[in-house]
Every structure is written in structure tokens, then in C-alpha cells.
Design a protein around this nucleic acid. Structure first.
Lengths: 352, 352
DNA sequence: TTCCTTGCCGAAACCGGTTTCGTACCCAAG
DNA sequence: CTTGGGTACGAAACCGGTTTCGGCAAGGAA
């Protein structure tokens, strides 16, 4: 048994087939094999095919860190998770990571992650990851209006891709879901139901999405000819507690709105609480439409009507875009947006 | 501006100080510098110091992937997240990752993660990560009773560390929180309050923790001379929905228990719902003690009394242990356990 | 036929480290 | 004064790839 283990270990070590093994088996040199596999023009099509087939048959897989020493590319994507955002991103972190990982591994890349406890250490984390070449590029979730991470990476010349858009698009590739369209649609939906007094609880205004969703809300309100009541507008609500507090403030005004649009689901769950505390029944006395599509929204009564974002898909697209960015594609061709999916559940109805 | 960027880029490229830069600056050879920095015995103390200081002053940082090609070690820890566990692990995934990342980066290592959608692809994911040397070792969360991951890694001779214990300890290092002690303590707490009929809703029995927590519960019940009612025992509840269903089953029996111990917080939140549906007030009509310490437990009324696990610390310890394992320490010295912290909040009281 | 391309591949340097091996030097013992 | 054994370092191979450069042979133009 110990012998078996040793043999197995020695075997798997010795059995790892290197580029030299392939070249010797074919009577070619390493350089030819390398260039054949990497699609250089000075290799004949027949040789390229011969090499490709032999490599596959022999099970040759280049070691990415061996390539890295010459190419400078590790084939790994970096993600720095900010602990401060935990509460806000907890609901979809798993899906997001899964998507990123899928997108990376589909191309044979990996995902390297680091966590930082505070905004200050975030910077340091990026610095060391960059200095040590831990990643060829970075995914930046939760784009901020004046994002220090963007500045740092731009200055360092390190590729990156945003989850969210950015005012100054220089050097920025991104993927984003059009929250402003969802907010517009939400208002239209409520207006169609007959609502005239609609409140808005926005998310974090340090993020770009805060301004975009605000615009979307305001646009649709103006479009419907509805007046904006400052009493019905709140922002920076990203947790249940935040949402609960803002909802109480809004519902305490008079006349109170008959519907509230929330920029994030967590805040909407807070609205549920405030409503319960005030004896208001969601969907009948107060309509709520939100955004994100977190799991918990399906576990409250009535189920939360929301615009659902596919975070797995978002992650996958972000990885794909970042890889193309690292490989040299210009940022202009690496900007994608998508629409959130409307989940029309039970939290809306005609005004009481 | 483009010139600045070029200079900066060229600068940072050229400025990266290699081992040769250090050796030339000192009038030594690469090999001497390398051995000095790596603590070889055939380097004089004075030289070692001189090298160490020069390297620090020059800001020399070895490239881990350059070292890897010779040493075989990437200095990276692997984690494969199973999508199937998402719902169960969602509440603490962020903290856990953060801890793992901290523990790794404290030693200059990194965390490489991959996600797998199904149990089948999990295996494949491990295989490719191993084959491509993406990680020097793996962290295995959610240890199962007959864990296929353990078999694979054992057979491959790849280091790993478990989050959770394991029946067959051969080759297994681990970190675990003693859930069985918490379950015992929970029962004692309830007994001290006067409860005689205590139910138990266990978590997933495919995991080792399921059996351990069951033992803990049974031990304390026997110790208190209380009878085990099969009607009051349920298992495999890891989501709110699960817990809700199990609670209804248990509470539908007669006589129903006056208290329920849950192996996981998510299930306990389900108990809250079932209780609400039945007009039972938690803490007065029904006592609940649970385990995990998830955030949501502080957001229900009354707050959930639970045994809180520090997932950040767990992650940090796991990384530290795995690194030592990769560096060659025998598994016997790499087994740590800790106690969960009792959060005595509002969900218990004397029996009605 | 000669010269010049062009296509295709080999030889060797290179990337940034680590590790093996050889050896000069110093000191003590014979 | 030679000899033997450490000590401390240099030289060079090595890890697994990539990339530059040069050259040979075939083919076309002069």
C-alpha cells in the first residue's frame, strides 16, 4: 500500500508530459512544437496538425506558470472582495463567484481572490497582487463614481473590467445590467396599475448604479407627468435595516405614497417590515417593486416583485471580457450590457 | 499622457527587481542570493544578513510562478465551491473566503477558487486543477462521511485540509468547531430552564457534522434522563423551507415538544415560520436554540439564540494549516478544533 | 545556370528563479 | 610543511516553457 502510493506518486510526477516529451516523440524540437501549438505562421499546416494531434493523444498540457515566466501572463483573473460590502453582496456572492469561475475555466484560466477588511487595505491588496503578478487583470465589482481602484489600475497599466459602468470610460471595459431601464419599467408598471404617488428608496450613492437608477426613476416619473416629492425619496439603503428606516420615514409623510420602488432587494425587505409594523399589507395597501432578484425575495409573503439580475451570467461575461482584454483587445469592443428580468410576483396591486 | 503611460509601464517593467539585480548589486551570484534568502546552511550568517537587507532595500520580491517551475510549488491554495451547497453555505461564504484569503496572504500565498455546478463536475474540476498544478493543496469545506474528494486527493498524494472531521483520519488534517459540544450545551441549557420534551432538527446527514451533532444531542438527553421521541427528531434540514416543514411535523405531534434544538440556523429560521403559522410565540410558547450564528438570526424577533461559529477565523486557521501541510508537516500535528460561542438571545425561555 | 525569395524548421538564448556540484580558502592536526 | 576536513561561495545545469535568429531547401525570376 505504501509502495502503491509511492509508485502512484512517482508515476504521476514522471508521467506529466512536457513539451520536450512531445517534441521527442515527433522528432521535432521544442521550439517547433511550441510555435505549432501557439499558431505561429511559420509552421506548415501539416506539421501543426501532426503536433496538435500528438499533443492531445499524449495528454500534454502546458504548465501555465511555466509559460508565465516568459510571457508574463499567469492566465489568472484577480478579484478583491471588500469586506465592507459584505452585507450588500452576500446574497449573490456565491452565484457571482460561480459565474466568474466558469467564465475563467472555460478558457483555461483561473480565478484568484483576495479579501480586504477595509477600503484602505483594499488598495494595499491590489498593490501586492499587482507587484507579485498574482493576476493578469482584475474584475472590479460595485463600480464607484470616483473609483480609486480604477485610478490605480489605470495608472499601473493593468487590465481590468468593471461590473457596472463608469463616467470616464477611458481604459474601461465593462459589463452591466441596465438598472435604470428596470427602474423606469417599474414606475410604468405602477402607473399602469393606477398609482400616482410613488416613492423611491435608492441604494448606495457612492456607486455609479445609484445615480443611474435614480435617473431611470425620475425619467419615468416625468414621463408619466408625476411630481417628485422629496418626502418620498430616500437613498443609501442597502440593508434590511436601512430599508426599514427609510420606509418608515417615507410612510410617515402625508400623503404617503401608495407604492415604493426600491433600487435593491435588501431595502425592499426592510419595507416589508416597516409595512408590517404599520399594519399595511404589501400588495394591497402598499405596492413594492425592487431590483436584484435575491433568493429571500421568494420567501416573503407576498413574494417580492423584482427585476432579477443573473449574477452567474454576469460573472461569466465579466471573465470572458477580461480575458479578451488581457489578450490585447481594445476596451471599446469590450463593453456589454444586459436587461434585468422582470419577476412579476405578488407585491404590487392597484392603489388602495 | 501616452508618453507618460508608456514610461510608467516601461518603468514598472524594468523596475521590477530580479534576483540577478540583487546579486549584481552585491557582487554575489544568483545562487548565493537564492540560498541566502531561503535559509540554506552553507551561507554565512553575515552574508545572509547582507543579502536580506539589500533585497529588502531594493524591494526584491521573488515571482512565485518563477519559483514554481523549479520547486513545483505555486504557493496557492485551492478551493472548489460546490454550487449544490449554495443555499446552505451562502450565509457565511463571504466570511469564510475572507478568512481563507487572510490566512493565505499572511504567508504570501494566494487563494485560487473554482466553482462546480454538480457533484460530478466537482470531480472533474479537482482533476484539472491537480493536473495543471493550479494549487499546491486544497481546502475541503463541508466534509462528508464518505467523501469522494478525500479519496481522490489521498490517491493523488495532494495535500488537503478538511473543514470538519473525518472517520478515517489517514492523511487528513483538519479544523473543526465542536458542534456536538454545542448541541449538548443547548440541551443542558433547555433542561435547566425546565424543558422535558425537546425536539431536534438536524442538518445534512451526508456530512460528518450531522452525525456528530446528533451524538451530542443524544448524549445530553441521556445525561438528563430524557426520553428520545422519534416524533421529535428530524434531519437533513439545511434551508428555511426544510426547517419549516420539519417543524410542522414535529409540532404536529402530541404531546409536542416545548423546545427544539436545530443543527443549523437556516432550519431554525424555518421553525420561526412554522411557529408563527401555528400561533406560537418563539421564546414563550416554543424555545429554539440553534447553531451557526448567521446574520439573519439577529434580524428576527425574538433574536435567535444560537452557537456562533467564527467562519472568518475558521478560514484563517484552515489556510494556515494547509500551508504547513504543503510544506511537509505531518497531518498528526495539523488538527485543530474550537468551540462555538453561545449567543444567548431571546429565543428561549421556560416551558409554557 | 544563377540569384533571390519564401517557406519551414532547428539551434540557442531567454525568462527568473532553484539546486547540484565543485572548489578555493582557512584552520587544525599530523 | 603537508594533509585533512569544514566552511562559504561560484559555476553551471536545470525547471518547462517562449521567442529570436539563422539557415537549408525548394521554387520562381532573371
Amino acid at each position: 500500500m505504501s509502495i502503491d502510493a509511492d509508485q502512484m506518486k512517482a508515476g504521476s510526477q514522471r508521467l506529466r508530459v512536457t513539451i520536450s516529451d512531445v517534441s521527442e516523440a515527433l522528432g521535432l524540437t521544442k521550439s517547433t512544437v511550441s510555435r505549432a501549438l501557439n499558431g505561429y505562421a511559420d509552421i506548415s499546416e501539416s506539421t501543426r496538425l501532426r503536433v496538435r494531434r500528438a499533443a492531445d493523444k499524449m495528454g500534454y498540457r502546458p504548465l501555465s506558470h511555466a509559460q508565465a515566466i516568459r510571457t508574463g501572463r499567469t492566465k489568472s483573473l484577480g478579484l478583491v472582495i471588500q469586506m465592507a460590502d459584505h452585507d450588500a453582496q452576500r446574497p449573490f456572492l456565491a452565484e457571482f463567484l460561480s459565474g466568474l469561475s466558469q467564465g475563467a475555466s472555460e478558457e483555461g484560466w483561473t480565478l484568484t481572490i483576495a479579501a480586504s477588511d477595509s477600503p484602505e487595505t483594499t488598495f494595499e491588496t491590489f498593490r501586492t497582487m499587482i507587484a507579485d503578478r498574482k493576476a493578469d487583470g482584475f474584475i472590479l465589482p460595485r463600480t464607484m463614481s470616483d473609483d480609486p481602484r480604477v485610478k490605480l489600475l489605470r495608472a499601473s497599466g493593468i487590465p481590468f473590467v468593471l461590473f457596472g459602468r463608469c463616467e470616464d470610460p477611458a481604459g474601461c471595459a465593462w459589463y452591466d445590467v441596465l438598472g435604470e431601464d428596470a427602474m423606469q419599467d417599474a414606475v410604468r408598471h405602477l402607473v399602469a396599475l393606477g398609482h400616482r404617488r410613488i416613492g423611491f428608496i435608492n441604494g448606495g450613492m457612492q456607486y455609479t448604479y445609484g445615480h443611474l437608477r435614480r435617473e431611470g426613476f425620475l425619467t419615468a416619473m416625468a414621463e408619466a407627468g408625476l411630481k417628485i416629492e422629496p418626502e418620498h425619496m430616500r437613498e443609501n439603503a442597502v440593508t434590511i435595516r436601512d430599508g426599514e428606516g427609510r420606509a418608515h420615514e417615507i410612510l410617515g409623510s402625508s400623503p404617503a405614497p401608495t407604492a415604493i420602488v426600491c433600487a435593491v432587494d435588501m431595502a425592499a425587505l426592510g419595507v416589508y417590515r416597516a409595512a408590517a409594523a404599520r399594519g399595511l399589507q404589501i400588495g394591497r395597501d402598499l405596492s413594492v417593486i425592487s431590483y436584484d432578484g435575491i433568493q429571500d425575495g421568494a420567501h416573503v409573503t407576498p413574494q417580492l416583485t423584482t427585476y432579477s439580475v443573473d449574477y452567474t451570467h454576469s460573472g461569466r461575461r465579466l471573465s470572458a471580457l477580461l480575458i479578451r482584454r488581457v489578450m490585447g483587445e481594445p476596451v471599446e469592443t469590450l463593453r456589454e450590457t444586459a436587461q434585468a428580468r422582470f419577476l412579476n410576483r405578488g407585491s404590487t396591486g392597484p392603489p388602495a
